[in-house]
Design a protein around this nucleic acid. Structure first.
Lengths: 254, 254
DNA sequence: TAGTGGTCTAGACCACACA
DNA sequence: GTGTGGTCTAGACCACTAA
C-alpha cells in the first residue's frame, strides 16, 4: 500500500508545528496531501476516489475535515463530486475544456468546439516572450505549433502554441490532437489546472490575415494565455488571434 | 422589530413543502432570506450583521446552517467576513470595483482606477441594442452617458453607459461620479451583484478615434457589459472602447 | 438494499480584533 | 477579557445511484 501521510503525526499544527508559518488548518493539509496524489498520478483522471469515510480514517481526521478538503478541490474543478455515486478525478474532456478554458463563443450563443488544422510544428530556441511566459532559461528550446481553428469550416483563430521541449519530449514527432490538454494528461501526466489570459485588440499582419482569409489590418482579438499545471508551474503559452465578426469572448464577473 | 421569516415554520422542506420543486436545503432558504434583506435594504452596504449565533436563533436553525448561508454569500462578494470582527455587507468602494469589475490593467501590471470626463449625458428613446440588453419595452427611455476614462492623463477608454430612465429617475440632472456603482447603491438602493461582458476587436470610427486621440481605424477592444442587480435584473449596459497599446484585459480561468 | 455524497445539528476549542 | 468568525469533531438523517 502506498504511503500518504500528513505533515506530522495526528494533529500537526495543534500539537505544535506551525509556529512560524502561522496557522495552517488541518483541512488544508489534507487538501495538500490530496493534491500531491493528483500530481504524482496515484489519483489519475477519471478515477473514483475512496469514500469520505475511508479517506478520513486513512489520514486520521474526521469525515467533515476530509469533506472540506474535497469540496475545495471540487470548487477548483480538480475533482467532480456526484451524490450517490462518488468523487471522481476531473478529466480534460471536450465539455470541460469548452466550459473552463474556451471563452470564444459564437454570437448566436451556441458554444462549440472548433476543429483545428496544423500549419507547422517545429522545435526551436525560445524567444524572449516565451522564456518570460514559461520561466525558461536562456537558450532553452520550445516546441512551437501553429494551427488554424475553424467553426463550421470558417477560419476563426490563428493559434501559436509554445511548449517547453524538455517537458514535452518527443511531442514534435507525431500527430497533434485537437484536444491538447487531454494529451498532456494521458501522455505526460500533466494536468492543466488553470490559466490566465491577457487580451488585446491588434491589427492583423499580412501573413496572419492571409491564413485567416481576411484583409491585412483587420482588427483581431489577441489572447495571450499562460496555462499552469497542478503544481503551479507554467507549462504552455498559447497566443491566439481571433476574428470577432461573428463571435465574441465571454467573460463573467461575479 | 422587523419580521424575517423563512418559507414556513420550523423545518419547511423536511416537514413537507418541497414535493414539486425538488429538495431545497435549509441553508438555501436561509440564504434567500438573507438576500431579501439585502435587496430591501434592511441590510445596507457597510453594515455589520448580527453574529452567527444571533442569526441562528432568529431564524430558528443551527449556527452551522447560518454559517453555510453566509459563506455562500461571502463567496459571491455580497458579504465580507472578517475573523474576530464580524460579517459586513459589501460596499462598492474603489477597491472592490477594481478587483471585481475592472479588468483592464496596465501592461506593467499595476491596476489603477482611471478618472473620467463626461462628454455628454442625455435622456432619449432606447435603441434596439439597449432594449435587448436591459429588457426594456419598445419606446422605453434610457439615460445615456458618454465619457472618456484616462490613466495618467492618457485617454484609454470611450465609455457609453445606458441606464433605464424609469429606474434611475433624475440621474440626468446632477453630476456623474467616477464610481457610478456606489451612486446606484446610495441613491437608488441598487446593488450591482455581477456582470457579464462580451469582448470583440473593432476598428475605431472617425469620431470615436478623435475622442481617444488616435487615428481612424485603430484597433480597439470593445467591451459590451450588462450589469445585473442583486435580484438578477439587468440595470446597466456599458459599451467600452479600449485602447490596448499599453494595457490589456485580464481574464483568469480557474 | 447498500453505499455514496449532502444536510443539519450540537458542542468544543482555536485564532483574531478590540477595548 | 470578551466576542467574533474559523476549525474540528461526532453522529443522525436525507437524497441519490446502482445493483
Amino acid at each position: 500500500m502506498t504511503e500518504h501521510k500528513l505533515e506530522n503525526a495526528a494533529r500537526p499544527d495543534v500539537a505544535g508545528g506551525a509556529e512560524i508559518l502561522g496557522f495552517r488548518p488541518l483541512y488544508r493539509q489534507v487538501k495538500a496531501n490530496f493534491v500531491r496524489r493528483l500530481v504524482d498520478g496515484s489519483w489519475a483522471p477519471g478515477m473514483v476516489l475512496p469514500s469520505e469515510g475511508q479517506l478520513a480514517s486513512e489520514v486520521g481526521v474526521s469525515q467533515g475535515t476530509v469533506r472540506k478538503a474535497l469540496d475545495e478541490l471540487a470548487a477548483e474543478n480538480l475533482l467532480v463530486r456526484r451524490q450517490g455515486r462518488g468523487t471522481f478525478v476531473a478529466e480534460h474532456d471536450e465539455q470541460r475544456i469548452l466550459f473552463q478554458f474556451f471563452k470564444l463563443v459564437s454570437d448566436d450563443g451556441v458554444a462549440r468546439f472548433p476543429d483545428s488544422q496544423v500549419l507547422d510544428m517545429v522545435r526551436a530556441t525560445s524567444d524572449s516572450a516565451e522564456r518570460t511566459a514559461l520561466n525558461l532559461a536562456a537558450e532553452a528550446e520550445v516546441i512551437r505549433i501553429r494551427r488554424i481553428r475553424s467553426l463550421g469550416g470558417k477560419p476563426l483563430i490563428l493559434e501559436t502554441i509554445s511548449l517547453p521541449a524538455l517537458v514535452f519530449t518527443g511531442l514534435e514527432h507525431g500527430p497533434v490532437p485537437n484536444n491538447l490538454y487531454s494529451l498532456f494528461a494521458t501522455r505526460y501526466g500533466i494536468t492543466i489546472a488553470n490559466a490566465c489570459e491577457r487580451l488585446k485588440a491588434v491589427a492583423l499582419k499580412a501573413d496572419e490575415a492571409e491564413h485567416l482569409g481576411v484583409a491585412t489590418g483587420t482588427p483581431a482579438l489577441e489572447i495571450d494565455r499562460i496555462a499552469l499545471s497542478l503544481d503551479g508551474s507554467a507549462v504552455e503559452r498559447r497566443l491566439s488571434l481571433c476574428l470577432t465578426e461573428e463571435a465574441h469572448y465571454q467573460s463573467d464577473l461575479r
